[in-house]
Design a protein around this nucleic acid. Structure first.
Lengths: 242, 242
DNA sequence: TCAAAAGTGTTGCATCTACACCCATGT
DNA sequence: ACATGGGTGTAGATGCAACACTTTTGA
């Protein structure tokens, strides 16, 4: 019953939804932003598309995602997880299976590194960061893919500690809370938020404080000892994405 | 930066973890069971493997999963969802990307149809149902894949109504509770279980009762009007799997 | 009439939410 | 001194687990 596919018919691509938190110029809630690349060829020439490329024969899926992420932004992901495999027959001319990943990159690294990356000539001007809330019409089914990635992020922030992927190694509770607020799109009570993270034991207090405005805020770091079973049996072989 | 993959190097397969609930001969909790196929060729000749096959160039991923499911069991899935794309370089000789689905089939249909299916000569003797708790060593990374599917099922039963995939159109609360108990591997309080499903409004009471032992139990049916947002934006284009 | 499953009621505990209140610092 | 965010306390609402209890059937 197994008909062997003629090998030349199906191609495998890997794309990545790369998310970061961008602080608005005036003081506001930060918002989610992601880089898109301008397509220079048909199909969909002139449209914006997710960063990605063809899978190399000797390259693991996750490595391909990290590679294209680095080629596009000059960054390494602080979190990387497979999102979904899209393979509808009509989603692209020719048969293309896209294994899509979603990644988080730290806000401070985006600011610092992307300048250096542009200067090095690697990131051309056809990479642009968009606000996740106001995306244009994108190539292929990429609007739908991003919607799903955002849904997954919002969902996952409730039961895992993904939000830490946006933040530097130490941060205040207000930093973390603002990340949650940006992801969920709503304000959270600072008092209750504090207690929630305290009882979850995922944070370790440091001796340092951030000063500069009003009462100094204690800096925390993530407690890597607590292992969240948020990916089930798959977690074991993908530890390196920490 | 995009190097076009030489097209002959990567092949795409679709496999499916097909789960049903099997009632033990003596009266006990039902247990999860799944069909495996005996490999007749290398690699892993003589080992049991997940049902699957090569993706056809003009076939959608989900259709391929449903097709191999039908070829193996003679059944249609009552629930079908993508599990994960496995693509480690060393998981198989040659480069194979396996898009794995997981499916639920109704217990009553397994009993009825599989006899007819075997009689028709389509399902050869090298298909065998195993108890999910006592699997032998399987071909490739299929033990790991099944572990992940079972984890996903246990997880999902908490916030969605997947358990209904094991049951006929009408069923008693005890039927549903036993399905939950088999999935979660623990007993549930009948009284509290009743209240939980009642407040969730996912069930519609019918006027019928199941008699035959002790006090008759009311039959319920699922309320298809309530749409659970358990798959996010992906739910829209995959409605037909109901 | 008795066993057993169907179905209802009630109580206690843990958690979440809203919000009042104190604390420490820059201006 | 005072405005502001950091941090603590607390009362009400809600949800859930445990378990006593009533109902209805088959044997």
């Amino acid at each position: 019953m197994m008909t062997r596919t003629r090998e030349s018919d199906i191609r495998v691509a890997v794309s990545t939804v790369i998310l970061t938190l961008r602080r608005a110029p005036v003081e506001e809630l930060p918002s989610l932003a992601l880089p898109m690349v301008l397509r220079t060829r048909d199909p969909h020439q002139g449209d914006w598309a997710l960063p990605g490329g063809w899978l190399e024969p000797d390259e693991n899926l996750e490595d391909a995602a990290a590679r294209t992420l680095h080629e596009t932004t000059g960054l390494s992901p602080s979190y990387l997880e497979q999102l979904y495999a899209f393979g509808a027959v009509d989603r692209s001319p020719g048969r293309v299976i896209s294994i899509v990943y979603w990644a988080l990159v730290r806000s401070d690294e985006v600011d610092a590194q992307s300048a250096a990356h542009v200067a090095s000539g690697l990131a051309p001007e056809n990479v642009q960061w968009f606000d996740a809330a106001t995306l244009p019409a994108l190539a292929f089914d990429h609007n739908q893919i991003i919607d799903y990635a955002l849904w997954r992020l919002r969902n996952k922030v409730g039961y895992s500690r993904v939000a830490h992927g946006f933040l530097p190694p130490t941060f205040t509770l207000a930093d973390l809370r603002e990340a949650y607020e940006a992801i969920l799109g709503k304000r959270l009570d600072p008092a209750n938020f504090r207690r929630q993270v305290e009882t979850s034991a995922t944070l370790l207090p440091t001796d340092e404080f951030r000063t500069g405005s009003h009462r100094p805020a204690r800096l925390y770091r993530y407690n890597n000892a607590v292992e969240l079973a948020d990916r089930g049996p798959l977690a074991v072989d993908e530890k390196r994405t920490r």
